[in-house]
């Protein structure tokens, strides 16, 4: 399919959104019973399930750190999640990249020094990929960690943006992501507004455009945070209500 313009003169994108509009976000927490914490993050057609186990005994003993917990990340992309029906191996370059993004984002945020010589394992399963997979993974992992009750200093939110056709676009879908613009993935600490990690793909961008894009993405992050905050509060309320109902 040849696309001549990604933002039409009326200011609408291919999927009918405006430039700074997010896709519909759905959040479900604590769906899986077998793990300590889990969350499903749905953003448009992107659908990511994250689960957290731990803190527990270190599986691979040579990886253990003496004075803090070790984070292990496993990323699985379902064969049916992308347009090409291909199986990703565990040592695929993209898989390793996402794993390291997740680890580097969460290492400074979690209070790992409370659990010496233990392991926190994070599993990510992509059920449907339609752009912004990395951001959705970070958001899902945050919610799963909160569900597991692992102490963290702040809420991490992430969003993706791109610079296309001399426009800054928020929350890219698959077509916009593969269009060849520079993609920026940023994760911020929602309360203190600090940027924890940024990733650039195909980085050929003017400095003033970069600052504009970063501002847009950070704004998107804080909007996603509001939704995530609502979802966690709602879930906790339900949990507390069900507990009191049981006691009665």
């Amino acid at each position: 399919m040849e696309i001549s313009e990604y933002v039409n003169p009326e200011g609408l994108r291919i999927d009918g959104r405006r430039r700074k509009e997010l896709r519909k976000i759905e959040i479900e927490m604590g769906k899986l019973e077998q793990v300590d914490g889990s969350a499903l993050f749905v953003e448009g057609f992107t659908r990511v399930m994250a689960s957290v186990c731990g803190p527990k005994e270190v599986e691979n003993r040579s990886k253990a750190v003496e004075d803090k917990a070790f984070i292990s990340v496993e990323f699985l992309s379902a064969t049916f999640s992308t347009r090409k029906r291909t199986k990703m191996s565990k040592k695929d370059r993209r898989v390793l990249e996402i794993c390291s993004i997740i680890r580097k984002t969460f290492e400074p945020v979690l209070q790992l020094e409370l659990f010496p010589e233990s392991e926190i394992s994070i599993f990510i399963q992509v059920l449907q990929a339609d752009g912004g997979v990395e951001s959705a993974c970070i958001n899902a992992v945050t919610l799963a960690l909160i569900d597991a009750g692992i102490p963290m200093i702040d809420f991490v939110c992430s969003c993706t943006g791109t610079y296309l056709d001399s426009f800054c676009i928020l929350d890219t879908n698959f077509i916009e992501e593969t269009a060849g613009g520079s993609i920026l993935i940023a994760a911020i600490l929602a309360k203190s507004k600090k940027v924890v990690s940024t990733q650039m793909k195909i980085s050929r961008l003017k400095m003033e455009n970069f600052t504009e894009l970063l501002e847009l993405v950070v704004d998107g992050c804080s909007r996603i945070y509001d939704l995530m905050e609502d979802a966690t509060r709602k879930r906790t309320k339900e949990q507390l209500n069900s507990q009191t109902a049981l006691i009665k």
Binding site: M152, L189, L240
Partner: peptide, 24 residues
């Protein structure tokens, strides 16, 4: 009120930090 991670809940001069909190 339900508190979520990263929320400011008090001054360090008034309270002592207990379980599930940190000082910054």
């Amino acid at each position: 009120k339900i508190i979520i991670p990263g929320e400011r809940i008090g001054k360090a001069s008034e309270y002592e930090s207990g379980k599930g909190t940190y000082i910054n």
